[in-house]
């Protein structure tokens, strides 16, 4: 299985093709619906973002509470499509990788190609299993959003599949 690290650089992204299995290590940031809304508000009002988007990877995830003695609770991917409306602006600002589940709109496939980024699929509905690949986790921004806050995660060999590669090719046969 191909091993890759964050932050993602274009050279490495170009070696990935749709359907390929990869093991991702490094820092990823969770962000789902409300966090995306806030990130976009910050971008449009020119406020500084809570983290550097250049080469960053966002994980569409809202984990359960951390059980005692564990690093994180169940932490599988949420439906990516809900984030489609926010994604092009983030890609424009330097975001390079996204992790989620399910398909993306045609517009996103085009934007991924344009900005030479990559979209990964995480094993959907496998939150307990995925928690084993998280080595560190802490709330990072918008803590008041609870499970929807941005968490900074350090992951080791997080098991993924390239969902959409930098050429805009999708492993999922999109009906739309």
């Amino acid at each position: 299985m191909k091993k890759i690290n964050t932050p993602l650089v274009e050279n490495e992204i170009k070696k990935l093709s749709a359907g390929q299995e990869v093991a991702l290590s490094g820092i990823i940031y969770t962000a789902r619906d409300q966090a995306h809304k806030r990130l976009i508000q910050a971008l449009t009002t020119g406020k500084s973002l809570s983290f550097d988007l250049k080469g960053a990877v966002i994980y569409y995830c809202g984990p359960t509470q951390r059980p005692k003695g564990k690093i994180i609770g169940a932490c599988g991917p949420t439906t990516s499509r809900r984030m489609d409306e926010f994604t092009p602006a983030l890609l424009k600002a330097g975001l390079k990788g996204m992790i989620g589940k399910g398909g993306r709109s045609k517009e996103i496939r085009t934007a991924i190609k344009r900005f030479k980024a990559v979209y990964f699929l995480a094993p959907a509905g496998c939150g307990a299993l995925l928690s084993k690949y998280v080595k560190k986790a802490r709330p990072y921004a918008f803590a008041e959003l609870g499970p929807e806050a941005i968490y900074k995660l350090k992951v080791k060999e997080f098991p993924l599949i390239v969902g959409i590669d930098y050429k805009g090719r999708s492993v999922i046969n999109e009906p739309f």
Binding site: T64, A74, C75, G127, A128, K132
Partner: peptide
């Protein structure tokens, strides 16, 4: 995933 959840008392899904 289901086995881990049961064994470790973790939620099957977040």
């Amino acid at each position: 995933n289901a086995r881990i959840a049961k064994r470790e008392k973790l939620a099957i899904c977040q």
